[in-house]
Simulated assay, not measured.
Amino acid sequence: MRTRRLALTAAAVAALAATATACGPDNSGTGSTAAAPAATTAGATAAAPGGSAPAATGAPAATATTGATPTKAATAPKSPAPSSPAASGAASGKSGNGTCGAGDLVLSAKTESQAGGYILITAMAKPGVSCTLPATHPTIAFGSGGIEAANAEQATGTPIPLSGAKVAYAGVMAKTTKGNQAVEFTDVIVAIGNADPNPAGVPVGKTPVDKPIVTNWHTVPKDAVPGL
């Protein structure tokens, strides 16, 4: 009987040993060489007390868990630099053949001795400006009180396109009376029509003014002599 019990005990021990060998020892804490779960390879370890555990080295955090190829961040398109007026061909004044304003012109005045003395007004378009002087006379006035010049010509003039170096002329006779009642001014105000929003003051030196007159615009200086 004793011998039989020993045999049974030995058989039981052998069975337990076989079971332990089939299941394998628990090596999770002793550096098992079995493949680790994907989360472990990504460095997603359990958080340590007091803070998050650092990611495992050797694998980028962006691709380890998903295996996806990193996506390049979209780059916003660059807006073109604003073009300057010179680059775009826009002039500071008018383009095309619109009616000139005084602000579109370079204006000057010169005293002439012909016909008893008069003021020759010269007009040129500013650089980059193309415009047309109307078929009439400029609006001419002296002083803040606005002593305005009357038309010296009965006939209508001809519209004059201005651009580049082309010049137009108008003649102003500041005093047409014989008396001494004239008022002296040193500047003449020039506008292109009464509605011109930017009339220009042009120096003329000391000039007696009484009942002034002005010619139409002309392309030749001698045609702008008042009274001829």
Rank of each mutant, 00 (worst) to 15 (best):
D26V: 05
V13K: 08
D104G: 01
L107N: 00
P221M: 03
P80A: 07
T66C: 05
V129H: 05
F142T: 07
T45A: 14
A74T: 15
A55N: 12
A17S: 09
A115S: 13
S95K: 05
T156D: 07
L6Y: 10
T3D: 13
N27K: 10
P60Q: 03
S144H: 12
P199M: 06
K110S: 12
L6H: 10
P134H: 02
M1P: 15
C131I: 02
K110L: 10
D104A: 03
V220G: 09
N27G: 08
V202Y: 06
D223K: 13
A34Q: 13
A22L: 13
P60S: 03
T33C: 07
M124W: 07
K126F: 09
S52G: 12
K166M: 10
A141C: 04
V167P: 04
T132S: 07
S108Y: 13
Q154T: 15
A73M: 14
L133K: 07
A86C: 02
A10S: 11
S144T: 15
P25Q: 15
T186A: 11
V204N: 06
R5K: 14
K206P: 05
G171P: 09
A42Y: 06
P199T: 09
A36P: 02
P77W: 15
P203R: 14
T156C: 01
G146I: 02
A34R: 14
V214K: 01
T21L: 12
G98R: 00
G201R: 13
N194I: 14
D223T: 10
A73R: 15
G117A: 06
